[in-house]
Design a protein around this nucleic acid. Structure first.
Lengths: 189, 189
DNA sequence: TCGGGAAGTATACGCTCGTTTACTAGCCGT
DNA sequence: ACGGCTAGTAAACGAGCGTATACTTCCCGA
């Protein structure tokens, strides 16, 4: 199949590889994805991964760098934050392809280079913004860490046990957990 | 070195392999551990893994089967459970070699056979006992799942960001999170 | 004592991985 | 129109993986 050839376009091919890598890394994590899988999904040649991104790790790094942060969830009132986090964790994190990168964070390699990329990403995209949102609370970092633990843990369990759709009760429970985690007293409806 | 030979003892060798596998799987997860690493750590020959356990997956399954459940933590009063869980998550889970297997659960393969082993283990060793402890609450399963999510997530974050020793405040925060998660009203000192 | 079975060993097989190299083919300015 | 930069390709490399096989070494009971 694929009878007709594609025009030769470095930028477009690079983007196709990046998109394919983003989807696959989010779905399976770093180690379970091969450069051949990425190239195949992008309908490109394997060698181009090396050519355009240096290496598989370089490509992974660029994927991480391009992923959105938690900024969207943080925009809004303080009282509603726990529920926004809970809804993100229960509903959006797995459905929205732009948010699934957190799954990859949860089960990636202990290859030092990759580990450093993941660490940096988890800090700058999640914990640091959340801590900043919490203000000058001296425990802000610890609270953000605990929230990150809950968020990634939800991803783990859903992955291991099956992605059954969460009930409203589940979202309420997660909301309560985020509330006490972040020490936010106000409670939504 | 190792100048003198060991007596030939099938049972002992098997046990050494099992112990080495348990430690390594707990430390690195299923995929990052090779049968050669296990054999080397056990000071045994690679082929014996296949001989005694059938395959790497078979060995992994036997490791999981031999791991203790949460039973020890569940023994005790209902009000103290959240704190026992929090202390386990913050302190014992990473220090006690007998408990570290939960780390492996968090970042293991999506090879179907391994995935099923992990799923089964997570259910029978953690979620099911915890749900049973909670009584005939119709939400018991959902609560246990959320608790499992928090527990494995803590492992993730500690692994990714570094295992800095948790502060008493961290344990208090986790206690509060487990409390609202399991909907246990009583609060310890 | 000595032969057979079992414990343990060395090694090779087939495969997949990330990466690299040598090559082909298309476009564009002159 | 054509030569040269460049996107894209095919294939191979070396390493590491799980596994299987043929072999050696040891012990113990007849």
């Amino acid at each position: 199949m694929r009878a007709e050839a594609r025009p030769r376009d470095r930028a477009a091919t690079r983007r196709r590889l990046l998109d394919a890598a983003r989807a696959l890394f989010a779905e399976h994590g770093y180690e379970r994805v091969t450069v051949r899988m990425i190239a195949s999904a992008a309908d490109a040649n394997v060698a181009l991964v090396g050519r355009y991104f240096g290496s598989k790790a370089g490509l992974f790094g660029e994927v991480l760098r391009g992923e959105p942060t938690l900024q969207v969830i943080l925009e809004g009132d303080r009282e509603g934050l726990p529920r926004r986090l809970a809804e993100f964790a229960a509903l959006r994190m797995h459905a929205d392809p732009k948010s699934r990168i957190l799954r990859a964070l949860a089960h990636s390699a202990d290859d030092p280079e990759i580990k450093e990329l993941v660490r940096e990403r988890l800090r700058t995209a999640f914990i640091a913004p959340l801590a900043e949102f919490l203000g000058d609370d001296p425990d802000a970092m610890a609270k953000a860490r605990a929230a990150a633990a809950l968020l990634t843990g939800i991803s783990n369990v859903r992955r291991a046990l099956g992605p059954e759709p969460p009930t409203p009760g589940d979202v309420d429970r997660l909301t309560a957990m985020f509330t006490v985690c972040l020490d936010i007293s106000g409670q939504g409806p």
